[in-house]
Simulated scan of single mutants.
Amino acid sequence: MRDVLCVPLDEENELVLATDCSGGIGLKQDDVVNVPYDVVGYYGARVAWMELMSIGATPKAFVLQNFVNDHAWHALVAGVQQTMKELQLSLPITGSSESNMPLMQSAVGFVAVGTVRKEEKRINITPTDACWAVIGEPLVGEAVIQKKDRIIPLSLFRTLLQLDGVYEIIPVGSKGIWHEWKLVHGERPLRCSLPLHASAGPATCVLISYDRAQQHFLQSLAGPLFYDFSRERGCPKSQCN
């Protein structure tokens, strides 16, 4: 089960909604992680876009729910716009700001809106002989800021979406790699050098399935961010074992 809502529009198309939220991250005194609001907007929007686009949906618009204050709106929007720039999108943004009740901590909600043709939806389409890997590393909180070089870039994510031989891309969230793996494979064992139960925060890594013929190309494309754990399926030597 993926973190998206698909609503039928007609016999061939579905409306797709993908969401994320952020709490305790911003510039308020009681925030747990202190970063500017454009950074908050960037990473929150990043998750929603990745969830939406990973199933093959075409982005149409973005909704921003700002519980910080009116003054944070423009910075949050700037962060959302940066994600769209990196994904080569130009789409409308709407939303609202809580201006009546002051909160002690920052809070923001993000919704990406799109459409997908039912026959092109990339959910549960991986062949049984496919290889699996993680690209990026699970990071959360301050580590997201301190280890940016270990996060899958949106530019790479966009490239993966367009590659023949990449079947599914599953953004990893706060429940970690093992949670996403289990949704696909049940309790099938998985051994990996990455921390399998660690939160991946704002989708700092993705789980992908792919044709083994693409192994070396994917490794060269992702470099040290590529962690393959498909050795038992006959794929080349992996970093996860």
Rank of each mutant, 00 (worst) to 15 (best):
L27C: 12
Q29I: 13
V32P: 03
V33E: 07
V33I: 12
N34L: 14
V35H: 04
V35Y: 04
P36F: 04
Y37M: 11
D38C: 06
Y43T: 04
G44V: 01
V47N: 01
V47M: 09
M50H: 02
E51S: 05
S54Q: 08
I55S: 07
A57F: 04
T58R: 12
P59F: 03
A61K: 11
F62A: 02
F62H: 03
V63E: 03
L64E: 06
Q65E: 14
V68Q: 02
N69V: 09
H74G: 03
V77E: 12
G79D: 02
Q82T: 11
M84Y: 00
L87P: 01
S90C: 11
L91M: 10
I93Y: 02
G95Y: 03
S96A: 09
E98Q: 15
S99R: 12
S99D: 10
L103A: 10
Q105D: 10
A107G: 12
F110T: 01
V111H: 02
T115D: 04
V116T: 05
R117A: 14
E119S: 14
E120I: 03
E120R: 14
K121T: 11
N124T: 13
N124E: 15
N124D: 14
N124Y: 09
I125H: 05
I125W: 01
T126L: 08
T128Y: 08
A130D: 06
A130F: 00
C131W: 05
G136D: 01
